[in-house]
Amino acid sequence: MKSYLPLIIGMTLVTYIPRLVPLTFLTKKTIGPKTKQFLLYIPYTSLSILIVRGIITAPQDMKLATAVGIGTAGLISYINGNMVLSVFAGIIGSYLIINIFI
């Protein structure tokens, strides 16, 4: 069987370096208020973009199931804030859609 080690090492490096570099270099410097404000928005903008990307890049037969899973998890977490419950509800939601429509 083919070894995927070169690919794994390459992927590891391009993933780890962006995680490492800002953390080690930015801790030395002081950051201006505008930059701080910008960084403060990152969790919201990136999560929102990842969610939308999840739906629009899903395979055609999984689009609805993905959207329903995300919607269910979002709704439950909005109501009671429990992440575990929300994730399970999301999985069950998409499971039901797959079984009903596909």
């Binding site: 999560l47 977490s77 999301g90 797959i98």
Partner: peptide, 18 residues
């Protein structure tokens, strides 16, 4: 198939309460 949706469900569960 629905297990893989779990990753995105988690993104939603992180964002919505905030």
């Amino acid at each position: 198939s629905s297990l893989s949706v779990g990753l995105y469900a988690m993104f939603a569960a992180l964002l919505f309460p905030e």
